[in-house]
């Protein structure tokens, strides 16, 4: 009897001692640029969000926020949700999420400024709090920052373990004059993200959205 008890205790200790704490859930935070001409691209953003809703699994998290004059604040989050572990409930949540996005796209107003850095900082906070195993920050913008006077954003950002993906990086009129500006803008963001511990990718072909979760 004593022998069996010891065996059970040892087995329990072994099982208790090595739990699998790895998180396999995905967390996606999508930043939407609503400034100026880019507001017209929101329909495309909606298609991307629909793709994400169709792809994300129960237990994954999704948040959509707009890039405003001061994006480092909760009020700019359009919708955020961690989907339930049961597929049927998760499907209901996805329908609700889609409704919120549809409403936002119809009523969205153009913002005067573009605070991408603030949005990225906000997204890192959300993804860390959600405890996602794989973190994705999607920036749907032309990557041109336009800050309110007095706002400080030229500092290194910490995006440890985050996959930062710039989507639909459109060329500005000034880029047409000097394309080096476009490449410089993208390169600056690459260096900022990679020096912050994250990975950087640009996906401009919106017909191949499956590339978002690859690599």
């Amino acid at each position: 009897m004593k022998k069996y008890l010891t065996l059970v205790l040892i087995l329990s200790a072994l099982l208790w001692g090595c739990p699998d704490t790895t998180s396999y859930s995905r967390g996606v935070y999508m930043l939407l640029d609503t400034s100026g001409t880019y507001k017209k691209e929101l329909k495309r953003a909606e298609a991307i969000i629909n793709y994400l809703l169709g792809t994300l699994q129960p237990g994954d998290s999704l948040a959509v926020a707009r890039i405003d004059s001061g994006s480092f604040s909760e009020k700019d989050i359009v919708a955020k949700m961690t989907f339930d572990k049961r597929p049927s409930v998760a499907n209901q949540q996805k329908r609700l999420f889609k409704q919120k996005i549809d409403d936002f796209v119809q009523t969205a107003r153009g913002s005067a400024y573009t605070d991408i850095t603030g949005g990225v900082l906000q997204s890192v906070e959300f993804l860390n709090e959600a405890g996602a195993g794989r973190k994705y920050i999607l920036i749907f913008s032309d990557l041109k920052e336009d800050l309110v006077k007095g706002h400080v954003r030229d500092f290194p950002i910490q995006v440890d373990g985050c996959n930062v993906i710039a989507l639909n990086v459109t060329k500005l009129r000034s880029d047409n004059v000097d394309p080096r500006e476009y490449y410089k803008r993208v390169e600056d963001w690459r260096s900022r993200v990679e020096s912050g511990g994250g990975t950087w990718r640009v996906v401009n072909d919106l017909e191949r959205l499956e590339n978002i979760f690859e690599g």
């Binding site: 699994q57 237990g59 049961r86 597929p87």
Partner: peptide, 16 residues
């Protein structure tokens, strides 16, 4: 397998 996720949760893992 799919309906089991309704019972034990679709996002939980045992090992990999």
């Amino acid at each position: 397998a799919l309906p089991m996720s309704e019972m034990v949760g679709g996002g939980s893992y045992i090992g990999h």
